[in-house]
Design a protein around this nucleic acid. Structure first.
Lengths: 338, 338
DNA sequence: CTGTTAGCGCCTTCAT
DNA sequence: ATGAAGGCGCTAACAG
């Protein structure tokens, strides 16, 4: 592999001069520049990024870790998010170091510590903030640059992008209530997630606003998998009387719930209204097409990267906290003549 | 951030000694080792991987690039693959540098060149080999370590993992034919993919073996999206007479095809048998559950990494070419009483 | 068993 | 406008 020395020798100049033309960091005479450029082209020389990183203390790499625990990686939701992250990172000239944390094997914070302490990445994107999140505690303590998808439950201050889950669920509830439903169940998220609380609050607030009673039996915690949605729905169907509608905190779980319905000869929409959350691409193509709360997943990914790269470049953040408003997309799973 | 110097100073030894205990590369007296370890712990010292890489010409990083062109990233297939890759990479002590190639913006080979020439990664995983694949030409020329998912159309020699698509489709055809279908359509993959040819051959071979005529009208090229499957199926339904069964080269496209069926009041299984390919997690949970050709996607990912790390470690590959056999999973989309 | 030292490839003052 | 030299953090001869 050609190095800066090879270029210098071939061009008959010093390595410093080569560096100057590569980085445009000092004036170089046109003639010298031409010779250097020619040598670079001839050798197909590309500056070694490792050496550059060592020298400049920057790797131009952003870390992104998914813990296989919380949200199963097989959720298309993640693909959307990763797409947004990877695309925008490429735009900004950054690379993505991607890891999955095998929950059982390794203490999660240890993985983060490794990434931070070994200088492998310049900054981190943290998805799915949790209650008392040890990752945040660690990163804040280390004063390491990061941006999260999701707020904190504590009085901690850090940049984040989040979706207003409260309003999202509230919208779903209003849609259901105005359609005449009154016994509305809720399939939530793992309670350690910060957003789980916001959404549950949206559920409760809507009930209260419309003078509907809160029934703890109608609230089930899901695990964000299709299987989990299926199981939760079966639990709900065993209730006496069963609910006449259900708000589900992820589309994948909603798919599972609809399967549980069908298994009992019930039809989503006609017999029990179902509303999901996320609006993954497949939601529109499901049978029946899924009414859901749309969150701009891809955009979230790209916003996260924009914020982080702004920080890494030493620029001032215009907004440190971004809350995006979700919207209701009505399809057939919540409509009785659907 | 603590460096090896800090540790050396605190422990009262030279940096070489610290290096020896970190890497177990030379004998060190128990007492000295203890002091060094203590200093390391006290400073929470972690060797800088960038410096290590520069020194040892290794980054312990493997690159994985998806081109947004061929297979839409939103295909859950990729998530499975990435999971296998990332998990196994973690096992082997490697990190994954993940990129999406924005087809329009950048020449794909340029992205690979950047990765290779700048020394950012030690090796590459190449998915979806194509006819006359310029990526392979480049990497072979550079003599850069890589393993592909998919064979080559040319007489090129490189390590790969592939699934026997010929047999996969053949199995699907036998299943359909033995169920009494005779007018069987085929929704294929973008023809620049090497595996597209294998699969089409499996289709033709089965027809020929069972004395069924080949009808070009029954063959449609899909783009691996759900939308594409939908469009292809509509084309097929416009035929006179329409097919009585269809083999689809990805589950996602099969989902789209089934939607097209339903839109016409037709039921997959009852009216037209549908068989997919991939067996993504959602296949079992679709309505109707999708009969499909199972390929061990996650395992493929981990095999790819195992092979590549073997190469990177300078060890001999046991098998340079791995062809995995797919299997038929019969569910309801291909059964008339389903 | 431990320390000194020479780079790895690059950027960057400081001279010239 | 160009070059010489030091150093980023670490490893690996080579000495002692």
């Amino acid at each position: 592999m050609a190095t800066i020395k090879d270029v210098a020798k071939l061009a008959g100049v010093s390595i410093a001069t080569v560096s100057y033309v590569i980085n445009n960091t000092k004036p170089v005479s046109p003639e010298t520049r031409r010779r250097v450029l020619e040598a670079i082209a001839k050798l197909d020389y590309h500056p070694n990024v490792i050496a550059r990183s060592l020298q400049g203390r920057r790797t131009n790499t952003i870390g992104f870790v998914i813990s296989s625990q919380v949200r199963r990686l097989s959720d298309p939701f993640y693909l959307e998010l990763i797409s947004g992250i990877a695309d925008e990172a490429a735009n900004q000239g950054f690379h993505i170091l991607f890891s999955i944390c095998p929950a059982e094997t390794l203490e999660e914070v240890e993985l983060y510590r490794e990434l931070v302490k070994t200088g492998r990445v310049d900054g981190l994107i943290i998805p799915d903030t949790r209650l008392n999140d040890p990752r945040l505690t660690f990163l804040l303590e280390e004063d390491f640059p990061f941006v999260t998808f999701g707020r904190s439950d504590k009085e901690k201050d850090f940049p984040y992008v989040d979706v207003d889950g409260f309003t999202g669920i509230y919208l779903a509830m209003e849609h259901l209530i105005s359609s005449g439903h009154s016994r509305i169940a809720f399939i939530g998220m793992p309670s350690e997630l910060v957003c789980a609380g916001h959404r549950l609050n949206g559920y409760k607030a809507a009930l209260s606003e419309y003078n509907l009673p809160f029934d703890q039996n109608l609230v089930v915690e899901g695990d964000l998998t299709q299987q989990g949605g299926y199981r939760a729905m079966r639990e709900l169907l065993a209730l006496e009387p069963p609910p006449d509608a259900v708000v589900v905190c992820s589309d994948l779980m909603a798919f599972g719930a609809i399967n549980a319905l069908r298994e009992q000869g019930l039809k989503a929409g006609k017999d029990i209204a179902v509303v999901g959350f996320d609006d993954i691409p497949m939601a529109a193509h499901f049978n029946p097409p899924l009414t859901t709360i749309h969150q701009p997943i891809y955009e979230i990914g790209s916003r996260l990267i924009k914020m982080l790269t702004t920080i890494l470049n030493g620029d001032e953040l215009e907004e440190k906290h971004i809350i995006l408003e979700p919207s209701l997309v009505v399809r057939q799973s919540s409509i009785s003549n659907g």
